[in-house]
């Protein structure tokens, strides 16, 4: 198989952009979509996951409904709902850029998965910890803040790592709503240049580099926040 990489330096036809600079701008869009969606997913997922473990029934039910809603609909369908259906029901949303809509779509989808992991982390703690907090006279909020969540988050770092790597790959659905990220670049550039193998190799490499960087970053965080004698720190 003969590979030829020269086309990356060629102009895409507008007189200023080369395929290489387009590739890097596409990488930027992938990082932007995934990054913004991850911040949203982590914030909402933590809140919803915590609420699911509350003793107040209606709050837990509401949080359960959130998780089931966003994890039972296929991601691509959710993206289309955000892009085509919701703006036609709420006209002011028409002027919202598709970037924002896809960040919401991807962020809320991932938030339901993060919420499940946070809930699992909290529920894996012995009941005694919650009771100890209450016995000390802490309010519910204080029990979560100082007793439960610090341990629960340490426990769920490994599954959160996979989730953070997943969101990079899942961000490829953004091509369907016209965000010019890596997948859209791959589909378009391979058609224009007829060098599909090289284009997909380059794009795959960038996906791998991104996901691996996140993996190493999360491993570093995992190491730094270890508590001696507790989860992950007993060495």
């Amino acid at each position: 198989m003969h590979l030829e990489w020269g086309f990356f330096l060629r102009d895409i036809g507008d007189g200023e952009t080369t395929y290489l600079s387009w590739l890097f701008s596409a990488w930027g869009w992938t990082l932007a979509v995934a990054g913004c969606a991850w911040v949203l997913a982590l914030l909402l997922g933590s809140v919803v996951g915590t609420l699911r473990t509350m003793q107040v029934t209606w709050v837990a039910r509401l949080a359960n409904a959130w998780v089931e809603l966003f994890r039972n609909i296929p991601l691509l369908v959710q993206i289309f709902l955000w892009y085509h259906v919701i703006p036609s029901l709420i006209p002011p949303l028409r002027d919202v850029p598709s970037f924002v809509l896809v960040v919401f779509g991807l962020g809320l989808f991932t938030s339901s998965r993060v919420a499940e992991q946070v809930r699992a982390g909290i529920q894996s703690l012995p009941h005694g910890q919650r009771h100890a907090g209450m016995a000390l006279g802490l309010t519910t909020a204080q029990t979560y803040r100082y007793v439960l969540l610090p341990m629960a988050f340490r426990i769920v770092i490994p599954p959160l790592t996979s989730e953070a790597m997943n969101i990079i790959k899942n961000s490829s659905v953004a091509f369907a709503v016209s965000i010019s990220e890596l997948t859209l670049f791959a589909m378009q550039a391979q058609e224009e240049t007829s060098r599909g193998v090289e284009v997909y190799l380059a794009v795959t490499t960038l996906y791998i580099i991104t996901a691996m960087t996140i993996n190493r970053l999360m491993a570093l965080i995992e190491k730094r926040v270890r508590v001696p004698g507790y989860v992950g720190g007993d060495r």
């Binding site: 895409i12 036809g13 507008d14 091509f175 016209s178 010019s180 589909m187 378009q188 058609e191 224009e192």
Partner: peptide, 27 residues
Amino acid sequence: TTGTTSVQHIRKHKNAEKVSFKEVFGK
């Protein structure tokens, strides 16, 4: 549509005619 040669044509045309429009790509 993503993955078609039409994208290139509008890109070239846009450049030549100095019109500025927003492009959206259907899958």
